[in-house]
Design a protein around this nucleic acid. Structure first.
Lengths: 340, 340
DNA sequence: CTGTTAGCGCCTTCAT
DNA sequence: ATGAAGGCGCTAACAG
């Protein structure tokens, strides 16, 4: 690191006091136009920027925002979050924050000191993804470090969150299936986030009921939690229901759809000839899989930007309100067959 | 942010001077064993950690390391770097650094001030991926901020780098094809990194020549630079060489192989029945594509960790030596057919 | 309108 | 072995 200029040196060069320089830097009142000009010229000429570490100390702020992900997150999850990261990065910079990434273990050892485990102990605020241990959240509550939860579908009102409206998305996707002539539709979902399951099944039922259709309870597959489990659940489902199969599946996540399609195809079924699939998330893999997956897309980058805006408000002790991202945008690819 | 303890308060509680506390914190000599004990107990009890911002100022270090990626990097590139990010994160933390991410534009406007464009102007060192504008590197040289280049295949010796040995990988992959009975093998590569092309073609030729095979110049497709261009190059190749087609392709990157397979299949060829494919990188998509791609894998996480080790040495003004990661590990999947 | 000064929390000589 | 003092670079109160 090269030796940098200081306010004092700039002041000396401009023949003014450090205060004047500071005022100019921070666009404050109390300095005559012509001194301001002179100082600004020197600043430009010397390419001076105030030392951030000194400001950190003075303001008791690190100007770092931390994006926390769980260590064992699946590649799929990473993929979804990769896009929101873009939004976080860009908006974070606009607000003058660095964004750092930090992994935290799924389980914290008892009585462990968290402070070093995440964010190296200094961050002005954090963004959490996925299911975050309640324990961790409480720690940040105690430290009075603000955070926002993204795509976490926690109970309404408990925290500041940026979530997707999965009721709506599920409804729209299911409608799409029905429009294409499907009458016997199954649902593949996870239930480990109760709120999430609630919304998905509600959207699903709303669409189905709206068309006077009914759905067999056995068509509700709800215990998926990752690719592998979805794959196995699907195989089991196809065997057990071999006498009365659906023609289409709504999957509450691309990951589940991809796994389920693989399971079906391995058992000799064809997609979309035998089964149609629609999902939601639009992760990058969905366009590389064959058949390409039709799915509902979200503006994930915007979600990241939103999260930062909220977090910055929180940091500045301004009121902030959870936001929900609505999307009915279907990316039509190859996994739906029109029934005549 | 909750009010934190200070050295002074700790000192008062322990009935010693701040200096003593500081010595204990930094494991320095000059404090009796029993005072050390007392102080340590207080520290534990109060969960005290020294204020990082104050240390930053004193040491003139931000304790931030920046991982810089180009703004327009393709999703594929992101995928490769996602894994090295894991290594960077973990090792960075071990060294006591935060790792922050920063995007930089492909092209910098003339005479622009870089300092705010990347890393918010304060980072102790940076890790670059991919092709990085020479201009940017020079800026960091001037600022005397150390950096290391990852997977960049720049000219040997000019910078500290962590690169893969693509000569070796190409050789091994090509051998694999030959072992499987292939005699007419084409090469799909990029040439925008001259050093990279040099190594790849050298490994390719070494394998081919080692078996007394020859290769038609028209089998050297070298101007791919992304998925789309690889796709188009492949289509063109298949048309132009329709009278004398190879039976196998080595592609210098999964991305190229995936695009090329798509091109071939769209033209009615079957993979691996008509053409076998092998590549190198092992990005996540390769296992979701059909047929699943056989490819050479790298320990990307280790690459990230390596890069951090090197960077930390540089930061501490210790000598550092570029490293090259060798890999001959083939992940066998479905894209190679054995010729009888 | 300008300059002097104190202090953010820590670390490290230098005396004691 | 311990305590006092100065300073890292910046900002903002307070005099002038």
């Amino acid at each position: 690191m090269k030796a940098k200029m200081t306010v004092k040196e700039i002041a000396k060069m401009a023949g003014v006091s450090p205060t004047a320089v500071s005022f100019v830097l921070n666009n404050k009142e109390g300095v005559s136009e012509k001194t301001r000009q002179r100082v600004e010229n020197i600043i430009k000429a010397t390419n001076y920027t105030p030392d951030k570490n000194a400001r950190r100390l003075y303001f008791k702020k690190s100007f770092n925002i931390c994006l926390a992900i769980t260590k064992k997150s699946s590649p799929f999850a990473d993929l979804f979050y990769l896009d929101v990261l873009k939004g976080v990065l860009q908006r974070g910079m606009e607000h003058g924050y660095n964004v750092m990434i930090s992994e935290f273990p799924e389980q914290f050892p008892e009585g462990r000191n968290f402070s070093s485990s995440i964010a190296g102990g200094d961050t002005d605020g954090v963004i959490f993804f996925q299911d975050t241990p309640e324990q961790l959240l409480r720690y940040f509550d105690e430290q009075e470090i603000p955070y926002v939860l993204v795509d976490t579908h926690s109970q309404a009102g408990r925290h500041i969150t940026v979530d997707t409206d999965c009721e709506l998305s599920t409804f729209v996707a299911t409608e799409k299936l029905i429009e294409n002539g499907h009458r016997k539709i199954a649902l593949l979902c996870s239930s480990f986030l109760p709120e999430f399951y609630l919304q998905v099944s509600s959207g699903f039922m709303r669409a189905v009921a709206g068309h006077g259709l009914s759905v067999s309870p056995s068509y509700l597959i709800r215990d998926a939690y990752n690719e592998k489990s979805a794959y196995e659940l699907m195989k089991k489902f196809l065997e057990e229901n071999r006498d009365d199969l659906p023609t289409a599946f709504f999957c509450a996540g691309d990951i589940y759809a991809i796994a389920a399609m693989n399971a079906a195809m391995e058992m000799g079924y064809r997609v979309p000839d035998d089964f149609s699939f629609i999902a939601m998330d639009d992760i990058i893999i969905s366009q590389y899989v064959r058949p390409q997956l039709t799915t509902i897309t979200y503006d994930k980058c915007a979600m990241g930007a939103q999260a930062i805006d909220l977090l910055v408000d929180l940091i500045n002790h301004k009121p902030a309100q959870s936001v929900v991202i609505k999307s009915d945008r279907i990316i039509e690819r190859e996994s739906i067959r029109r029934l005549v």
